[in-house]
């Protein structure tokens, strides 16, 4: 599969800081994510709950099939995937929310904003907004939240991606979470 080799190369270049590689990587990962999600849904029709971690892993395996990805690639792949997951979820929530409310722009009730569930797409939108502001202050904290919340990565996996200690991730996470909670509650 030509794509697998391509993705391995792209990941390697991405790891080295090649921004163009990232932009070429996104649609590939995205397409595969969707394919996998649909396949999962078709199999597990009674319950639409997918484990994002499982999903991302499956996508990675599929894309890397035949290639020889370095261990770091996996981590970087997760970083890319988690950003996509956020994008997809927020887009979905926005459409669903708009459909439900008839129009967007209404104020989201606090209680709804602090919870995340099928019925409460508003929470996700509030989180997305707050994350956008967090990224302006602290890019790394934003990435940590993305990886943990949207792609379900563990602290250890995140540490691997960011090449910092798990303890640092934990500390950053604590502050990011407090800050987001404050932002959303205000």
């Amino acid at each position: 599969m030509a794509e697998a080799i391509e993705i391995t190369q792209l990941l390697a270049r991405f790891r080295l800081g090649d921004r163009e590689a990232e932009s070429r990587l996104l649609p590939l990962v995205y397409g595969e994510l969707r394919r996998q999600a649909r396949a999962c849904l078709a199999r597990e029709r009674s319950d639409h709950t997918l484990s994002p971690t499982a999903l991302v892993h499956e996508v990675f395996l599929k894309l890397a099939e035949g290639g020889q990805p370095a261990w770091q690639d996996r981590a970087h792949f997760f970083a890319v995937a988690s950003r996509l997951m956020r994008q997809i979820l927020v887009d979905h929530a926005r459409r669903r929310h708009a459909a439900k409310r008839g129009r967007s722009g209404e104020r989201i009730p606090l209680e709804e904003a602090l919870t995340f569930s099928n019925e409460k797409s508003a929470g996700l939108l509030a989180l997305d907004d707050a994350l956008g502001r967090l990224a302006q202050n602290d890019e790394r904290q934003c990435r940590i939240v993305e990886m943990k919340f949207f792609a379900g990565l563990s602290m250890e996996e995140i540490a691997e991606v960011l090449r910092v200690s798990p303890r640092t991730v934990k500390r950053e996470w604590t502050m990011a979470r407090a800050w987001l909670h404050k932002e959303i509650s205000r």
Partner: peptide, 19 residues
């Protein structure tokens, strides 16, 4: 807050995502 993950949404959202 933010414990767990966005799992409950991800399946449907992914399958519905546009290009």
């Amino acid at each position: 807050f933010l414990d767990g993950n966005a799992a409950s949404e991800i399946g449907v959202a992914m399958a519905n995502a546009g290009h």
